[in-house]
Write a protein that binds this DNA or RNA. Structure first.
Lengths: 187, 187
DNA sequence: CGTCTATTTGAATGTACTCAAAAGCGGTGG
DNA sequence: CCACCGCTTTTGAGTACATTCAAATAGACG
C-alpha cells in the first residue's frame, strides 16, 4: 500500500502502529474497463484510492446523456462524499475508464478509523479543502474560458490522459460535444 | 455569537468551555457595501462567517471582467482556503455586496483552535465535504443546463437574493452576460 | 438634482450544437 | 489472420443559444 501512504504523507505524519491500523481497514481490488463502482440511486458505501488506471464520476441526465464531473487517474481519491456522509442516495455513477487497481474502505470503517486515528480527520479536512479549490478552478474555467481554452488547459494539466481515454469522455468533462472537440483538435 | 454556534451545532456538539475558547478566538466586524475583505495576490489571513448581509468571491480575469465564483449570504463561510492553508497568493477577491456583519478568525488562530478544540477539525472536514458537493452541483449545472435553467435554479435556491443584489452579479455567478440575463427575465 | 452605474432594447455576430452520414478503429469469432 | 460488427471519431450543413456593441432608459446615491 505504498502509494496510499505516500498520499497520506502529503499532509500528515503517521506512526508505524497507525499505519498498520489503517492498512488493516483498507482492502484492495482490481476492476476491468467499464466496471461500475457506484450507481446513482444507491448510497455510496466506499471511498476509493486509485493506485493505477482511471475512474470517472459522472451524472446521467434526464435525456440519457452522461456528464463527467471529474476524472480520477492514479493517486486520486474517488467516492460520493455527500452521499457517504449523509447516507443519501448518490446522484452520480462512478466507473472505470481503464483496467484499474484500487484501495478502498467501507464508510463505516472509515468512521471508525477517524476515531482510532484522529489525524485522519485532519488529512481529509485538508484533502477536501484542496478538493474545493480544485472544483472552484473547474467552475471558473466553465465561467470564463472558451471550449478551446478549456481543452488547452486539460492538455497541460493531464498531459498523458488524452491518449489513454476516449475523446467523448474528455468532451463530456470539459462541457462540450465530442463533435465539437473533434473540430477543435483538427485546428 | 449565536448564529456562529448554531452553525457549529449542525455538525458537532460543543461544551461550554469549548464555546468560550472559540468565542475568544473570533472577532466581530461590520463592513460597508463594496468593502474588500481579500484582494487577489495577497495571502488569505482570515476566515469569515456571515452573520447578516452578503459577500461574494470573484475572479478578476485578464480582460478586467469579474467572475463571481460564489455568493456568501447569511449563515455562510467565506475565505480562500487554498491560499489560507498553503500560504499562497489568492486568485480571488472577496467583497461585500451589502452592508455585512461578520465574525472572523485569523488563520494562525484557527490552526491553534484546531489544537485546542480538535472537534473543529471534524466540523471543517464536514463543512468542506459539503462544499465539494456544492461545487460539484454548480459545475454540473454549468455542464448540462442552459442559461435559462441555471437562472431558474438560482431563483429557487436563493429566493430572496434576486431582489437584494445587482443583476450583473447574478449573471456573472451563473456564467452569462447581464444583457442576456435581462432578456431572460423579460420572458 | 445631477452624476454615475446598472439595466433594457435592438441588430448583427459567433461559438458551439444538432443531425446525418461516412470513415476509422478495436475487439471477437470463425 | 482476416472479416465483420459495434462503437467512436470525423466531416459537413444548417441552426440555436448566447454574445458583442451601441444607444436609450432607469435607478441609486451623494
Amino acid at each position: 500500500m505504498e502509494g496510499l501512504f505516500e498520499n497520506f504523507a502529503k499532509h500528515i505524519l503517521l506512526s508505524t502502529e497507525e499505519k498498520s491500523t489503517i492498512e488493516s481497514a483498507f482492502q484492495q481490488k482490481e476492476v476491468v474497463k467499464g466496471a461500475l463502482l457506484l450507481e446513482a440511486g444507491q448510497v455510496c458505501r466506499h471511498i476509493y484510492f486509485v493506485k493505477a488506471g482511471c475512474l470517472r464520476t459522472y451524472y446521467l441526465d434526464e435525456s440519457g446523456d452522461e456528464k463527467n464531473v471529474i476524472l480520477h487517474p492514479e493517486d486520486w481519491w474517488a467516492g460520493d462524499l455527500a452521499s457517504f456522509s449523509q447516507q443519501r442516495k448518490s446522484k452520480y455513477h462512478i466507473a472505470a475508464l481503464e483496467r484499474t487497481e484500487l484501495y478502498f474502505i467501507d464508510c463505516d470503517q472509515l468512521e471508525q478509523l477517524f476515531r482510532d486515528v484522529p489525524k485522519l480527520e485532519r488529512f481529509f479536512r485538508i484533502l477536501f479543502q484542496n478538493g474545493i479549490a480544485f472544483y472552484q478552478n473547474r467552475l471558473l474555467s466553465m465561467l470564463s474560458r472558451s471550449a478551446e481554452e478549456r481543452f488547452r488547459i486539460f492538455r497541460s494539466v493531464y498531459p498523458h490522459l488524452e491518449q489513454r481515454i476516449a475523446q467523448k469522455h474528455i468532451a463530456s468533462l470539459l462541457g462540450m460535444t465530442p463533435v465539437f472537440l473533434s473540430i477543435l483538435r483538427k485546428r
